[in-house]
Nucleic acid binder design. Structure first.
Lengths: 353, 353
DNA sequence: GTTAGCACTCTCATTCATCAAGTGCTAACG
DNA sequence: CGTTAGCACTTGATGAATGAGAGTGCTAAC
């Protein structure tokens, strides 16, 4: 059965209406409010047909219709009316990123916060994978008996750090030397390349082989995302949506978002080629819990990855708003990070003259 | 009216029973299960009297009695039966801390996790205040155009970090020099002392006054606790307790724990002299939400503060279990940290010989 | 001081009737 | 053949009535 224009129109009305009101929509309301040229009986026929096509379901015979996941997908791809954010929202984005925030952790937090505030959904963010970042500087700093702090700075203004046990009797000078040697060895390398040079590097080190071993282990550990990299904002926002008047749903939701691991899986597992990605529970992705939708975007600016962000919420989600917010945040980030880089390049150019 | 022994006994039974079952307890059940030598009518008289004294309340006339906040407090201070954790739980604590974990952030996380797992309540932890920690090492590391990473290592194996803008044209060598000078200036100082020497230090710096200014600002900022310092574990645990079958309570709870600021206030605001602190909502502390109890402990080992940890949950909380867990975690930490320090001192002593 | 007995109160689950909403179907219409 | 009016049917939601069960408070007797 083909999808007539009228069917499309009606489907769009149903989805729009349901997203706005959370109430199953009836043939009568459609005929009265949106399709005044036909009767409710006609609409009823169309609805029955859309139901047969798998786009609509009803909880019970006298309860109006509700979009199926398939309908949401179709809606997002073909039906949704485009339209930008309000001036107010755009302003808010602008103001939020114009400020200081000079390292990735803060950036991740503020991006996540902005998304949550504007969409009114719970937002998740995960910073950029460190895998492909190149090491800019690396140092071992003395910090009391038997221990040194390993600091790694990468091109992406990311830094990670951890403690390394050092042998007794290693002096501060020796440590500084080791630090310098290590810096030389790894500068310019991507974290993902560390394992390739592992053998080679270790063989060069006699005396402090053990220290080197720890350094390499630490470096390798940074290629895996850690709990701390996943930020969650606005968990309480779910109570603004009536599906979470039901305790079971809240329980489900809270259990999922309590595990940073699970969140990372849900968020992180997206296709790089698609800028904005929508996963609808029980339909697109096993990780996403039933009754939940997850919309994510992976940002980059100046060719650099800035992490993946998104919202998690009920399937009846305001996809238009969410997607528009994600798009605009992306643009804003690109603008800001882009400009900063340009500034820098200009300065550099000036210097080079 | 004085509190007879029998009243105490009955009150203890009511609180114990209610904590275990979450069901208001009746005179009949007390007489049958615990006080077989008297009749329910006698118990009833005692209950009425305890109610008059403010220890018990009832939701409705035929609903049995429930302890008041005042009763819980009395229970904790005088009635609660002492008794240690099971072998199994002690083992779990042992195993959890015997491992690697070599910096504060990991420690905070694992302590919080252990507490949440063993008590079955949501746990909050906040790392030690940096105020009084002495700076061990401080360094500025180059990391791309116009920016340097400020790394601070304190005696408490804590480290904090942030980025500093540096002037154009400052070379790596200059940076290393500045780094060394700064390290000399601040080594051994407590973070809380930084503001005292601010003027003096700034006046010594001509050329790189601006850099120094940023360094000092950063140092000062570490005396305030940051969102990242507050960790939350086991939020989903509340669903194991029937008071959170009610959506309103969940909403309340989730809203509170979503704000790290609020959490920090609730947790952090305790009296240093008391090792274990119990706050019962709407009775002890304005910060603690109505219907919630918060039990916290501030740990230290070898004279050093290790942070404040606790659980947040319903007023009908298993105080005995919670307090015992907190005590044992404290002991375990003291044991481990203490030993490590001893090891080190021994090594040092040997070297000195 | 303790107890048995009983009336009283309140909750909870069940039943029943009613109402409103919305559909599906059928028959009629243009 | 698409559209429509009309109507029977289904279902959930609401509220009143009811009875059972639990627990208390009070009184009078021990």
């Amino acid at each position: 059965m083909k999808m007539s224009d009228r069917k499309r129109k009606i489907l769009q009305i149903v989805v729009d209406e349901y997203i706005n009101t959370a109430v199953p929509v009836s043939s009568k309301s459609i005929a009265e409010k949106h399709l005044t040229d036909v009767s409710s009986a006609t609409v009823r026929n169309e609805l029955a047909s859309l139901e047969e096509l798998g786009y609509l379901t009803q909880f019970h015979t006298s309860g109006g219709r509700v979009p199926s996941p398939q309908a949401y997908r179709f809606y997002i791809e073909e039906l949704m009316e485009k339209g930008d954010l309000s001036e107010q929202d755009l302003d808010y984005i602008e103001r939020s990123f114009s400020g200081k925030s000079n390292d990735v952790e803060h950036l991740v937090r503020s991006v996540s916060k902005v998304i949550s505030e504007l969409t009114d959904y719970t937002s998740v963010g995960i910073g950029p994978h460190a895998d492909e970042e190149r090491i800019r500087n690396i140092a071992l700093l003395a910090c009391g008996e038997g221990r040194a702090l390993l600091v790694i700075v990468t091109g992406e203004r990311i830094l990670r750090d951890s403690f390394i046990e050092i042998p007794d009797g290693m002096t501060n000078e020796e440590l500084e030397n080791a630090s310098r040697v290590i810096a030389k060895l790894f500068e310019g390398k991507a974290l993902s390349e560390v394992k390739d040079v592992e053998e080679e590097v270790l063989s060069e080190f006699g005396q402090y082989r053990q220290v080197m071993h720890e350094v390499i282990d630490a470096l390798k550990s940074y290629t895996r995302p850690r709990d701390e990299d996943v930020v969650l904002t606005g968990a309480e926002k779910i109570f603004n949506h009536p599906e979470y008047d039901d305790i079971e749903n809240v329980k489900n939701f809270l259990t999922v978002i309590s595990s940073k691991d699970k969140l990372a899986e849900i968020i992180g597992d997206e296709n790089d080629e698609i800028q904005i990605n929508v996963k609808i529970g029980s339909c697109d992705d096993a990780e996403v819990p039933e009754d939940c939708s997850v919309v994510t975007a992976t940002y980059s600016a100046g060719g650099k990855n800035l992490g993946t962000y998104g919202v998690i919420g009920p399937i009846r989600m305001d996809y238009h708003k969410v997607i528009t917010v994600l798009e605009n945040v992306g643009k804003a980030l690109e603008g800001i990070i882009g400009n900063k880089q340009n500034d820098k390049n200009e300065k550099k150019d000036k210097k080079d003259e």
